[in-house]
Design a protein around this nucleic acid. Structure first.
Length: 265
DNA sequence: CTCAGTGTTCAGTG
DNA sequence: TCACTGAACACTGA
């Protein structure tokens, strides 16, 4: 379930299970939607018998580097993930690609909905789609005044800005809602004209929520009890937060938005 | 059977 | 150019 923390979990899976091993073969159904740029066969040919040297991430983009170019670039879409399992075991349900590695390890990307994408890039950081992305909030959070300048230069809603991957790479729908709930800011607030203290609260909570969810390996049952996350899914309109505040649902920036009017202005 | 959905992109519009 | 809206994508599971 892929926002930055879930993708970072995928990166760690790859780092622990795949780095240092050689890719023996690449399997999966030919699928021009998932393999949107190069065919599965072409990827298989390019990666066969190459050593995996690094697992990297920027925002929601994940890639494996090999002893030489190209790299394998993976995006999880809405329902993708990465799983390792021993040789002899069936690939996970909805698996779209499987890498067979030395040492009897297989690495698969299950993705029921097929919004995920698998491509190759010679220099991933400096080519689209990654070159189009904004800063990664886990590693590149701007300082207070830079961040303020970036925010007020835009003319949109704060939620729309947080979701804009060209601004900040890795925030998705629930994280944007969580940031704005914790920061006490109405998701519809215009970015130009926001006061410095509100902007700084957004910056700090962005960092906090990203760090905290990465720390627990994106395991939502370990998120702090005070997070709106736990209340937003069952989401009968009128549900209450742990603090007894009424939660409302509206659409902002085209996305379902859970918020607490009494605590966000 | 219907419908929403942790994401992205594109066409059309202002 | 910037930004917004809505639709499309493909499919599961409630």
């Amino acid at each position: 379930m892929p926002e930055l923390p879930e993708v970072e979990r995928g990166r760690l899976v790859a780092e622990k299970t795949a780095v240092g091993r050689t890719c023996l073969s690449v399997h999966g159904k030919d699928d021009s939607i998932v393999f949107c740029d190069q065919s599965r066969a072409r990827i298989a040919r390019a990666l066969k018998n190459k050593l995996i040297t690094r697992a990297c991430r920027h925002g929601k983009q994940l890639w494996l580097e090999f002893e030489n170019a190209p790299a394998l670039l993976i995006h999880f879409g809405m329902t993708g993930s990465l799983q390792a399992y021993p040789e002899g075991q069936e690939p996970p349900r909805f698996s779209r690609v499987e890498l067979r590695l030395t040492g009897g390890i297989h690495l698969a990307m299950p993705d029921p909905r097929r919004f995920g994408r698998i491509r190759m890039r010679d220099d991933p950081r400096n080519e689209p789609p990654i070159s189009m992305l904004g800063f990664d909030p886990l590693h590149q959070m701007p300082d207070k005044s830079t961040f303020r300048d970036m925010v007020v230069a835009r003319r949109t809603t704060i939620k729309g800005l947080l979701l804009n991957q060209k601004f900040c790479a890795g925030i998705g729908n629930w994280i944007a809602d969580e940031i704005l709930y914790q920061a006490g800011i109405d998701p519809r607030t215009r970015t130009d004209g926001m006061d410095d203290s509100s902007i700084e609260r957004v910056r700090r909570w962005t960092r906090k929520i990203i760090e905290r969810s990465v720390e627990v390996n994106a395991n939502s049952s370990k998120f702090p009890r005070t997070w709106l996350f736990h209340e937003r899914w069952g989401k009968p309109e009128g549900a209450l937060t742990r603090r007894g505040e009424a939660i409302e649902i509206m659409t902002v920036a085209g996305r379902t938005t859970a918020w607490v009017p009494s605590a966000q202005s």
